[in-house]
Design a protein around this nucleic acid. Structure first.
Lengths: 351, 351
DNA sequence: TGATCCTGCTCATACGCATTAGCAAACGCG
DNA sequence: CGCGTTTGCTAATGCGTATGAGCAGGATCA
């Protein structure tokens, strides 16, 4: 046998109509349950049509439906990262899990926009031949997004929701409250006696990263007598990062990611610095959540799965014409969980 | 600001045409690069059209394109399991990873058919209002599939590829060679002196399960002087399973899944049976790959990511009208990896 | 000076569906 | 029997794109 390539003539409403002996319009009316409202199709006719539909296993062509202006219950999923989600599994798997669970709940299908081309190191959503026109709305993932694209989507009135807070005007999102979470961790360290902080952070301008910095700075300022060394890092020279931290005399190290924390823990161990008795370590964790070490790192964990399912539900609400979504509802932050690990301890009495 | 629900007037070819001062057909021709072939559009006109297209950021409506009969580069992904993939992450994540990687390579988008309803405990692909009409072809996942549905798809000439071997006539698939992998493991145990096997297996009729049984039986028969206790299990009464294995006097335990192996290892330890010196253990592993114990289980691992990406590429080949796909090419098996763990050891000299 | 050919487009239609307006027949009523 | 009303449908149209057929005007040729 050879695989048939010709999908053959698709079943259409017209064919159904011919089989039943009615018009295509009648079939459409029956199919959409409009048989009772404006138009009047008696039960007898309706049942005959339904019978043939069942026999032929006809299903309406979604493209045609879409063209005719009805929704399709298809949500798009797009990521601005340059490789599609599951490559960096720790990060995206929980997001996809949340999206899928919500989509299943809603009875929606998901269109993963894997085909978006990478231009200038970033994926482009609005490229030629994108499939956005097929979906009812779209979910946007990624640490950084293209503000211009977001604004165009808003301007066009295209329904979408970003996962993660976005500055851009009018962009609906569901994000993690990194400001509050970071502040809470700083407070906890302060309560344990720590006054000198070091923050090894990324230099990206993504909102999540800015939020963590803001939470840190605001809380440090609010506490009054605490200080912080800011150490920008691209993760490539952890030796230099470690030296900066050590020389700063900080008693708490806050690392932007678990990976950074891991690297610096290695250096600490090599230097004979004990964690947490000599130095407390906190990770704010993004990108990857699982620590490769068997240390139980005290850290911030964004509720990724919940974030994603809430974003999906928000999108569904936006798409529902019977609701009006308020601006506040369209921009939501969810609390991060704090993993109360073993790397944050009271300041030693005598340093 | 309130989220706009009216998508506003979309940019169309007609509007572009008005702006440029040409006809809609011209715009279409330019857009599809047919400007040079049958129709003749001079470079000057073409550039003016392209200029306006760029300015307006116009992109063709995929629904309309589809309706007009062009391919969409959209592949469907459907699973027969009753919850959508990422719920059972160990199993599906590698599959999705492989599919996505291949799709990205091919420039295809993926439609996850999350909306398929569960009827009689199994998902239905061919339900009313399914979105199959949108996709060019479809990938099918799941331990068990509905043979009737598969056959209907084949009969309709709908292009699809199953991940995992399928008995049903004419079904294209990319599967794991469980027969060969299982046989190889049996051979290894035999070579180490083992003659008495016990196989704790699932009772499902999925092809992968049948293949493992077949590999075992064929190899046992080929070896001549080996025997095997078959112990069907639904995984709920591991005590009974363990007793059966112990009483059989087997020196090698082959467990269908890592989970079963884990449970039986617990019982062995409780009984003071040492693995592997008293009893060797082999897992054929499906469903979940990671062992919850820190034992280094000797086991069979299907190359899930590769399986999935190969299946995706096969589907693309089937969809490519310029190739003809032979029946053999459409039904491929890939070798399983054998993890040479610590639970398979030579038979003790004196039992 | 026609007849022919080429160039540069446009026209018209199909794709499958949803929807509105409206038609023919049957029915009810006086 | 004449007239309005209801019933049961259908005709027609639009959605945005792709594409084969064809048309007007200029150039070339005999």
């Amino acid at each position: 046998m050879t695989i048939s390539k010709a999908p053959g003539p698709r079943m259409t409403q017209r064919r159904i109509a011919e089989l039943v002996g009615v018009s295509q319009a009648t079939v459409s009316l029956v199919l959409n349950g409009k048989a009772d409202e404006a138009s009047r199709i008696p039960a007898a006719t309706r049942d005959r049509v339904l019978e043939v539909i069942r026999e032929t296993r006809y299903v309406a062509d979604p493209a045609a439906r879409r063209l005719a202006g009805v929704g399709n219950k298809i949500l798009g999923v797009f990521t601005y990262e340059s490789a599609f989600p599951t490559a960096t599994q720790d990060f995206y798997t929980p997001l996809l899990t949340g999206i899928e669970a919500a989509a299943e709940e809603l009875g929606c299908d998901l269109l993963l926009l894997t085909s978006a081309p990478v231009i200038d190191g970033r994926r482009r959503l609005l490229h030629e031949q994108n499939r956005l026109g097929l979906v009812d709305g779209c979910l946007l993932l990624g640490l950084e997004m293209d503000t211009a694209e977001l604004e165009q989507l808003v301007a066009e009135g295209f329904p979408f929701v970003a996962i993660g807070r976005r500055e851009a005007q009018g962009v609906p999102y569901v994000g993690a409250d990194y400001v509050g979470g970071t502040a809470e961790l700083v407070r906890r360290a302060y309560a344990l006696g720590h006054r000198r902080f070091a923050y090894v952070h990324l230099t990206s301008t993504g909102e999540s990263i800015l939020d963590r910095q803001r939470g840190l700075h605001e809380e440090i300022a609010a506490l009054g007598d605490a200080t912080v060394l800011m150490r920008p890092s691209d993760g490539t020279d952890s030796s230099a990062d470690w030296r900066a931290v050590r020389d700063s005399g900080a008693t708490v190290l806050i690392a932007e990611t678990v990976r950074i924390a891991d690297d610096l823990l290695d250096h600490a161990k090599a230097d004979g610095v004990d964690v947490p008795s000599d130095l407390s370590v906190i990770a704010l964790g993004d990108v990857t959540t699982a620590s490769r070490q068997d240390v139980d790192l005290t850290r911030l964990v964004p509720p990724r799965t919940l974030l994603a399912s809430e974003a999906t539900l928000l999108l569904a609400r936006i798409l529902d014409p019977s609701h009006e979504v308020s601006p506040e509802e369209a921009r939501t932050l969810l609390d991060c969980a704090i993993v109360d690990g073993a790397t944050l301890a009271p300041l030693r009495a005598t340093p």
